[in-house]
Design a binder for these strands. Structure first.
Lengths: 128, 128
DNA sequence: ACTAATGATCTAATGAACTAGGACATAGGT
DNA sequence: ACCTATGTCCTAGTTCATTAGATCATTAGT
């Protein structure tokens, strides 16, 4: 159960969402695979110096999404969903895309169509 | 001062933002042009059955953006900014883009790059 | 100068999101 | 049967966005 989770308080991103993102990233990179048990809500709460319920909220949302599988009294485990890799990847890139858009849309004098074309080309060659 | 503004309470979109959007739309379509006086904050507040400050907040934000020009004691007027058309248009399209992305990203099995390419092509031919 | 109309400011009420504290319910081993 | 570890639920406090109420400051016409 390798847990190298860390929180970034001043980021403004809610703790429970940071937890969700890091778990999704771990699943996407196969650092966590189907069947793996996650830290207990209490253990992770202590490690992240956060309340038990904050961790529970993250686990709950991921269970609803089908990523995790919680068993009361036993623990929380990674589901055997297969599409997670693409899902997470797409999500991360969409967020990055939107970020850049909102940050640069005002500054660039380009019409939207050209702007999009640029973006598309850039991601096509470097879909990092 | 043609004011056919309406608010949509159940939409979840804050009143002041709906006001902002409708004014931007009016400016974009030339229903409001440079120099035109907008309804007074009190008049529009009455018309929309909303508090004076809600309208004032919308006007204030648009003044900061350079769209409007408020003169205490006199009124609020449309600025003579020339880029408004493109600005508003781009904003609307970006919002639409993001909307579609978030709505369809999960459903489409396409890699993001192809997805973007499609979008770009579509907007290029029909930049409605 | 005065006055009426206008936007600006200050304060408060409401609700939602986030986090935390404490108590409950369930699973699994002894 | 018990006991411990687990997730779940209920409640409360804090912060922030939104809206409103009331008052102040400024403009423009008389």
């Amino acid at each position: 159960m390798p847990t190298s989770f860390r929180l970034d308080p001043p980021s403004g991103v809610p703790f429970y969402r940071q937890i969700i993102d890091q778990i999704l990233a771990a699943v996407a990179t196969d650092a966590l695979t189907a069947g793996d048990q996650l830290p207990t809500v209490r253990a992770l709460a202590v490690e992240l110096q956060v309340n038990l319920n904050t961790v529970a909220k993250a686990y709950k949302e991921l269970e609803i999404r089908g990523v995790l599988n919680t068993r009361q009294g036993s623990g929380t485990y990674v589901s055997s969903v297969r599409v997670e890799r693409d899902e997470v990847e797409r999500r991360r890139q969409v967020i990055q895309l939107v970020d850049e858009f909102l940050a640069r849309a005002a500054g660039s004098g380009l019409p939207l169509a050209e702007f999009l074309q640029e973006f598309s080309a850039r991601m096509k060659e470097d879909p990092k």
